[in-house]
């Protein structure tokens, strides 16, 4: 059986809020290492990969591999019934028809119990190769969100160009063009504004802004975001969570003929 207790319901609320416009029905794969999810959007252009390690939960117990097939719309409806500060416990049998959620208020003596009916989801799993990326950019998640939102008003796609000490986001649209450059920046006083660019070779790739704007819905999960790029491979956008957990998005590039 599965029993996983989260100190704060907000983590799961934010994860589901962040991915539910990209993927609809997902298997939450539970085993003794934690709860994982991998799902592609309908067009097979973007992929969500979530890992909530067992250390994220306290306690965490999962004796067998259990796949919880959940409709994310339904999940969101139930998670909205939890206060952000509530303690959240997920429970399921070994061959479950439902997943149970218990929300406990730490301040009040209130316990809320919900069940969500599970579905059989036949999901394609992709093997994602370990990649040594040519460029890794760490920047404030809010800054990345602003850039994607601003450029999406001008164009459908953005070119991300990483070179030594600088990364440039460039778009060309019908009404005009835009470009935002960021340089390495580190401040002891405001480390949350740091930009770090690690580069082994220059990279320039073009991506659909529609998907990037969608990924940025995860900005509330982490103050910083990591962009990993190599020429002619999908972009990795990673939001790191506590206890080595993460929410990752992969986006296939647009490539010329």
């Amino acid at each position: 059986m599965l029993e996983a207790r989260l100190e704060q319901a907000s983590i799961l609320k934010k994860v589901v809020d962040a991915i539910k416009d990209l993927v609809q029905d997902c298997n939450f794969d539970c085993n003794d290492s934690g709860i994982a999810l991998q799902a592609m959007d309908n067009s097979h252009v973007a992929l969500v990969s979530m890992m909530l390690k067992s250390d994220t939960f306290s306690p965490f117990r999962c004796d067998r591999n259990i796949a919880l097939g959940i409709n994310l719309n339904s999940f969101q409806k139930v998670l909205r019934c939890a206060q952000n500060e509530d303690i959240l416990t997920l429970k399921a049998d070994d061959s479950p028809d439902v997943v149970s959620l218990v929300f406990e208020s730490s301040e009040q003596d209130r316990i809320s119990e919900y069940d969500i009916k599970l579905m059989d989801i036949d999901q394609e799993h992709l093997g994602i190769p370990d990649t040594e990326y040519a460029a890794t950019i760490t920047m404030p998640s809010g800054e990345f969100q602003r850039i994607c939102r601003d450029l999406s008003a001008l164009s459908e796609s953005v070119a991300i160009e990483a070179e030594k000490n600088a990364v440039k986001f460039v778009c060309n649209g019908d009404i005009g063009n835009g470009a935002i450059s960021l340089r390495n920046h580190s401040s002891v006083e405001k480390p949350e504004q740091n930009v770090n660019i690690e580069l082994s070779e220059p990279v320039a790739l073009t991506f659909s802004l529609k998907y990037l704007v969608n990924f940025c819905k995860a900005s509330g999960l982490s103050g910083s975001v990591k962009l990993c790029l190599s020429n002619e491979v999908p972009l990795l956008v990673e939001y790191e969570l506590a206890s080595n957990s993460y929410l990752r998005f992969y986006l296939a590039p647009k490539i010329g003929d």
Binding site: H44, L47, E124, L126, P234, A252, P253, K254
Partner: peptide, 14 residues
């Protein structure tokens, strides 16, 4: 013009 690729062009099915 650039074409949108799908992930299948880069990742293999498990």
């Amino acid at each position: 013009a650039k074409n949108q690729k799908t992930l299948a062009a880069f990742f293999t099915k498990k």
